[in-house]
Structure formats: C-alpha cells, structure tokens
Design a binder for these strands. Structure first.
Lengths: 338, 338
DNA sequence: CTGAAAGCGCTTACAG
DNA sequence: CTGAAAGCGCTTACAG
C-alpha cells in the first residue's frame, strides 16, 4: 500500500495540513517541523496523489501540445524536437504534456481535442501552423496558450518565434563573405510568417551589401505557394538556371528546399559549392548527414520548446500578464556547401 | 461554472449515484431514468471531472509511452508514427498518453520517468529498443506494459511485432520474380530482433528459391554492428562491389540503408534498377519521396501503435491474462528501384 | 430500481 | 506555528 498524507502525518506526529504545507513549500511551518516532515516523506518514499491534489486545487496539472497532423507525421522532425524541449522542461515541474494533432480544416465543435473538450489541461502550446478558429476559441474561453513558431498578424498573443530576420540576414552575409556576388533566393509557402521574414531579410541584405546585378534585386528570386518539399527546390533551381543570369549562390528558405536544390545541381553536373554555393535554414537532422553536409542557419528547436513552456507556465500562474513575444536567436553553421 | 454531477442529479431529479451509473454504462437503472439522465447530461454539456473520478476509482487514466531518446529525436519518424497510432486509438477511450524518452544506459533509480516514479500511469508501451532494466522493473512492480517492435529473447512479455520474416521473404521473392538471380543483403545492428528476422528470411528465401551462385549464400552479405545510417549503406555496397561477384539486386534491412546504397550506386554511375535493383524495408517517409521512389516493404506503423494500445488496455483490465504476441502483417510496395 | 452516505487523498480557510 | 474540519467531485457498497 502506498503511503498517504495521513500516514505521513501520523508518522511525523503532525496534522495533514502541516504535511501539505511543507510539501508545497509554503510558509507557516517552523523550521524543525518542516525538517521532520521532510525526512519522514523521503523515508517512506511518499508521493502525493495527483488526482487528489488536483481535485482539491481545481487544476489539471496537464498542458496540451497541439500540432498540425501533417507537421507531426510527415515533415522533418522540426516540431518533434520542439516537443522534446517542452517535455524536458516539464520534468522539473509538475505538468504532464498531452500531445495531439489536428487537421488544418478543423471544426471547433466536432474536432476539438479531447483534453480541450473535457477541460483536462491548464494551458496549451500550439506548434507551427494551426487553425485560426482553434486560436480564437482558446481566446474566447480564456485558456492560456502560446504560439510556437507561428504568428497571426494583427493579433496580440503569447508567442515564441525564431529570429528569422537576423538568420536570413546572416545567411546572405556569410555568403557574401565567402565572395559570392550573385545570390539567389528560393522560398515557398510565404503564408507562414517565418518564411516571409526570411525573404524580407534576404532582400534587405542584398540591398545593404550591394549584391546582385539588377536593381530590383528580384531577378534571382523563386517562390511558390504550395507546401515546401524537395521537389520545389528542384523546380526552383531549374527556373533560376533557365534565366541565364549570373548566380554563384542560393539561399533557401529551409533545408528541405536546399537539399532538393543540391540534388538537382549535382544531377546537372554543377559543383557545390565551387560553381554554386547553397545555404539552408533550420538545421534539420538531414542537413547534418547530407552529402555534402549542408551549411545552414541553426535553429535551436529544443530551446524554442523550453521557452514556450516557460512562457506558458508564467501565463498560467499570472493570467493577467500581457501577451509576450520571445525571440530565439539563431546562428550559421558552416559546413560544406558554401 | 461547469456543471457537476450534483447539478445533473438535481436537474434530473435523481441521485448522484444514478447519474454515475448511467455515465459509466452500468446496469441497475431503468430505461426511462437512463434516458432522462442522458438527455440532461447532453443538455447541460456535462463532462465528469477526471481527477474526481480517478480519485474515487483509484486509477490514473494515463498511459505512458516510452522511447529511446535517439529513436525519437534523430532517426526517421518510424516510432513517431507508432505514437500517432496510439494517440489516435486513445481518442475513443478515456486514456491520455504521456510520451517521454529515456537513455539506453539508464539507471532505474535516478532516471526513472516521472510518471513511473509517481505512479501516474495505469500501464506503459515501450517502443523500439529500450533498456532491459526498465523492463525488469516494470515486471517486478507489476505495471502492465507492452513492447512495440522489440523483443527480449527468452522472456514472455506482451508484445506487438512486425512480421519481419514474411516481409524479408517477400522482398527476396519479389526481386526473384523480376528476374534477379544474385541478390545481396545489407544489414546492420543485428542485435535488434527485427533486423535479425529480416536476415533470417533472406537466407532462407535465397536457399528456397535457389538463388545466388555460391553454396553458402553468404558471399553477398554485408552486416555491421553500429546504429544504422545511410553511410553504412554506402559502406556496404562498396564492400560488396569490391568482391566482384555477380550481383543484380540488393535487399537492405531498412530504407535508410537502401537510400545510402542508391546514392552511392548513382555516384558510381550504376543504373538503378537496370544494373542493380534495390529493395528497402519499413516504407519511411523518405522512401516515398526519394528519387527514384524506393521499392520497399511497407510497415503499417499506425497499426502497430493501435494494436499495442489495444493489447495494453486489455491487459490493464485483465491483469491475469497471459502475455501475448501480436504480429502485424506487411506488404511490398513496388516503386521504381526494382 | 433508487438514494443516502461513506470514502478516495489531497488543500485551504479558520480557530486557537 | 499548528490542528480540526470542510470541501473538491466523483464512485461504490449498502439499505430499502
């Protein structure tokens, strides 16, 4: 039989109220009693029962993690890493993380995650692109939440973002430092705010550093709408090559694109980086193990998760706090494609 | 204020006991009362509070999902898919899934997942390779568990496995049907039981189908110990090529190896599949989007998860049930590398 | 078939 | 600083 708070109280010769107070590190207990209770707790290897304390406290002790189905199951492990960061951070606290996926075209009344429907979480983090009606619903119901690597323009929310702008700027700068003069950009699905920022950084850096030849700076740009894949990279580099404009480097909005670009370049017998240097963004697992290893902007995914967790817990404990934006820095990892 | 069982009871003019009985679909309530209670429940949109019912029931309502850190964060999304299968299956029930990672060299007393330490789960599924001392501990503490795609020889446990043997056999058979006569095998880390089975199927099929030229059938085999990567595939195909033995196909123990093999083959100007056909195993995401798309043995990862979930729940509800082994079938998906 | 009541194991005012 | 007691919202024997 596992010990209960009563057993501890009797064993230590105090009341259960006192035991509760010391467990929760609250004032109102003398140093000696506190000490006494603590030792009997460890002696009997006592752990308070979650359901009991939650019931009394009117909390759930859970945090939800919601991610778009496709992002979790198909794309590179970007958001899985974020999740891991959260899970790691949660180990020091008392929260458990409940991971679930949603579809993008999701119906607030029928597709609602169980833990939201039944009120089984104290807050939630939304990773990556998520349905806007979900966000609206959380707002309306006043459930604390934070957006991770996503942003809804014109709305004030808790969010933790990647420093996409400085990452993009650094990318171009690094390429310039290596002597590249004509730097292309290949992007995609610019409806994701991260991608948009990377593109904005690119155009600014090109201008600032007086790179490229045309004056609009847009001749060496390729962008499309659909979800980003390697194939889009292939498509993009071919479109750019067909223009027959000088080009000695390409900055891709993410690593997946970059890998597609390199594959195609190799197929067409271009040497990377001798003929054309390639720079990615994200530093996904595949980037490190690609041949040749990809130079890219490293995004600390675990840190994104940790920060989101911290921000969420702060918000739960202090509901009146104004929505905050936290930005996670990035840096360039030079490998062999530049 | 969210409705409680009391409100429902008052509203329906019955006792809370009756409400509880109908919620839990238990006998002892007349059809009319049952109907009455049900409608008031939906009318007031009542959901019982988890912590309260758990406290009363002495259950946690949670299931743990434990996976080796490296498997979750670095390798292809194989086990993430299994997790998703479990999560999906859990949506019809009342369990929440708690995902956590462990290291392989893990200390039962210091590294124990929180939910195990504090008794916050009713059972756990262990995905892929896990520390044996963890398994022993679960056994000792009589915590229900099931192994997913893992097996500890000589022990009787609940487990759900891939039909690796018939998958491996099918792989060779398909290759033979396409007219291949000299089929190589590239494997790795044969301490994982799945890999071992695939290899066993290979050797048997080669013999049965009277393939290959040597009589031991082992000339075209390459295996190594370390964790499987693309590089091992590259290494393996080079070692095989160096032998200068006729070879018109290679069956790889998994897709990652196969992709490494194809890359190297392409680099050396071999045509795939004309010169050498390549067959993988697992059907990971990358297999489908590889150029050329990889022929492979499709493993229904979600189904693995679902079955593990079902088996675990059965075991929780019926602790005396004998340990069971469930095998999930596989089939060959012919794409362009054979 | 139905209800009153005890109990699950905590937390939190409230007295003292 | 400490304890007695009520309460959190369910479930489950037990009477009737």
């Amino acid at each position: 039989m596992k010990p209960t708070i009563k057993i501890i109280a009797k064993q230590a010769g105090v009341s259960t109220a006192t035991v509760s107070l010391v467990m929760n590190e609250r004032p109102g207990v003398s140093a000696e009693t506190r000490e006494l209770v603590k030792t009997t707790i460890t002696e009997l290897n006592y752990h308070p029962k979650r359901s009991a304390s939650q019931l009394a406290r009117k909390q759930t002790g859970n945090i939800g993690f919601i991610i778009w189905e496709d992002h979790f199951s198909e794309i590179e492990m970007f958001y899985s890493q974020c999740f891991l960061g959260i899970e790691l951070a949660s180990r020091d606290s008392d929260y458990y993380i409940l991971l679930t996926t949603v579809k993008l075209d999701f119906n607030t009344s029928t597709d609602l995650p169980r833990f939201l429907k039944y009120g089984d979480v104290d807050g939630v983090v939304l990773a990556g692109r998520v349905p806007h009606n979900l966000v609206n619903m959380l707002e309306k119901r006043k459930i604390p939440f934070v957006l991770l690597d996503y942003d809804i323009p014109g709305k004030l929310h808790n969010k933790v973002l990647i420093d996409n702008y400085s990452g993009g700027y650094t990318a171009v700068q690094k390429l310039a430092e290596k002597g590249r003069k004509n730097i292309a950009y290949i992007g995609g699905s610019a409806d994701h705010p991260s991608i948009k920022e990377r593109y904005r950084a690119y155009t600014t850096a090109i201008k600032d550093l007086k790179l490229n030849v045309d004056d609009t700076n847009l001749d060496l740009v390729y962008q499309t709408e659909p979800e980003i894949t390697r194939e889009i990279g292939t498509e993009g580099i071919n479109a750019l090559l067909a223009k027959n404009i000088p080009m000695d480097a390409v900055f891709c909005a993410n690593d997946t694109l970059a890998i597609g670009v390199i594959q195609e370049l190799k197929r067409q017998k271009y040497e990377v980086p001798q003929d054309i240097a390639v720079m990615g963004f994200d530093d996904i697992y595949a980037a490190r193990f690609h041949t040749p290893p990809l130079t890219t902007i490293h995004v600390p995914k675990m840190d994104l998760g940790k920060e989101a967790y911290k921000l969420l817990v702060e918000t739960i404990n202090n509901p009146e706090q104004r929505p905050q934006t936290r930005v996670i820095g990035v840096d360039c990892i030079c490998r062999e494609t530049t």
